[in-house]
C-alpha cells in the first residue's frame, strides 16, 4: 500500500491543465479529490508518473441554475452537493444519492466530477446522471464538447474522455416540479460500494405514470440506463404486474461480477429489489 513515485503539478487554469495533460501524455492523470485515484495508486493498480491537480483551478467549484438546467462544476465536492439548497430544491435525488456515498470524510474531499469521470461501475453518480439525462462538458485543447452521460461510459474505467480532456461541468435538465424520485442502495456497511443500487425519477398524472427514467449502479461493467424497464412503467398505474415486468426488464440487462458482495445472481436480484423500493418511494413522493 505504498504508491510509486510521481511528480505533482498544480495548474491554475483549465487551459494550462489541458496543455499539461496533453504534453505529459499517458503517464499523467488529473487529480480531483483523490479518493478513487489514490487508493488505486496505493495498491499500485495505477502508477501515474504525473498528477495534475485540478484543485487550484478557479471556477470549477460551483452550482448554478442556467435556464432549465442546473450546472455543477466538476470540482464541487459531494459535501457541497449535500449542502446546496439550490440542488435540494431542484434535484433532490442528488442529495439523497450523495448521502449514501462513502462517508463524511471522503465526501468532504471527493468531487462530483471525479465520481463521474472515474469510470468505476461502483460509483453512484454515473447511473444517477444517466437517469437524469445529464450531460458532461468535456474540455480539451479544441474547446468544449457535450457528451450525454448515457453515452459516456464504455467499459470499466473506460470513458469517452479523449487524451488531454477534462470533465469541467455537469449539466442536469431540471426534472418537472412534483416529480417523484428515489435512490436506493444496498451496501454491506457505511463506506461500501453498492451491491446494487437503483435511481428512479418519475412523473405521475391522475394516478398514471407519465414519464420514467431508471439508472442502475454496479451491476455491470458500466452504469446502466434501464430504458426498457422505464418504458414499461409509462402509461401504467404502477400496478403490481407492471412493476414486476419492469423489474424483470431491469434485471435482464444486468451483468454483475461475482465478488465478496455476493454472487452475480444475487446482485441481479438485488438490482430488482432496489428498483422496486426506489420506485415505491418515488411514487409516494410524486405529487400528482
Amino acid at each position: 500500500m505504498i504508491p510509486g513515485t510521481f511528480d505533482y503539478h498544480r495548474p491554475t487554469t483549465v487551459e494550462s491543465a489541458v496543455a499539461l495533460l496533453l504534453q505529459l501524455g499517458e503517464d499523467a492523470r488529473p487529480l480531483a479529490g483523490g479518493h478513487s485515484l489514490i487508493p488505486l495508486m496505493k495498491t499500485r493498480l495505477a502508477a501515474p508518473e504525473h498528477l495534475v491537480d485540478l484543485g487550484a483551478i478557479e471556477g470549477l467549484h460551483r452550482v448554478e441554475r442556467i435556464g432549465d438546467d442546473v450546472v455543477i462544476g466538476a470540482m464541487t465536492t459531494q459535501h457541497s452537493v449535500i449542502n446546496s439548497s439550490l440542488l435540494a430544491d431542484l434535484v433532490p435525488i442528488l442529495r439523497e444519492t450523495a448521502l449514501v456515498i462513502a462517508d463524511p470524510q471522503i465526501r468532504y474531499k471527493g468531487t462530483i466530477g471525479g465520481n463521474c469521470a472515474n469510470g468505476d461501475p461502483g460509483n453512484d453518480m454515473p447511473a444517477l446522471m444517466q437517469c437524469l439525462g445529464a450531460s458532461y462538458t468535456l474540455t480539451g485543447t479544441g474547446g468544449n464538447r457535450q457528451v450525454s452521460a448515457r453515452d459516456f461510459y464504455l467499459g470499466a474505467y473506460e470513458t469517452a474522455l479523449a487524451p488531454g480532456e477534462i470533465l469541467t461541468e455537469i449539466r442536469i435538465p431540471i426534472p418537472p416540479t412534483g416529480h417523484g424520485y428515489g435512490y436506493e442502495k444496498l451496501k454491506r456497511k457505511v463506506g461500501d460500494y453498492a451491491t446494487a443500487a437503483a435511481a428512479v425519477v418519475i412523473t405521475m398524472a391522475a394516478g398514471t405514470c407519465t414519464s420514467a427514467s431508471i439508472g442502475l449502479t454496479n451491476v455491470s461493467e458500466t452504469p446502466l440506463w434501464a430504458a426498457e424497464a422505464a418504458r414499461i412503467l409509462v402509461g401504467s398505474t404502477l400496478d403490481v404486474a407492471t412493476v414486476d415486468a419492469a423489474v424483470a426488464a431491469a434485471e435482464a440487462i444486468t451483468t454483475p461480477a461475482s465478488d465478496m458482495r455476493g454472487p452475480a445472481e444475487y446482485r441481479t436480484k438485488m438490482a430488482g429489489v432496489m428498483l422496486r423500493r426506489a420506485l415505491g418511494r418515488a411514487r409516494v413522493r410524486a405529487t400528482v
Binding site: 495498491t43 456497511k189 457505511v190 465478496m260
Partner: peptide, 16 residues
C-alpha cells in the same frame, strides 16, 4: 486470498 483489505473485510462502523 479474497477480500483481504478493508474494502471487503467486514469491520463494522458505529452505524452498523
Amino acid at each position: 486470498v479474497m477480500g483481504a483489505s478493508f474494502m471487503d473485510f467486514f469491520l463494522p462502523t458505529a452505524v452498523e
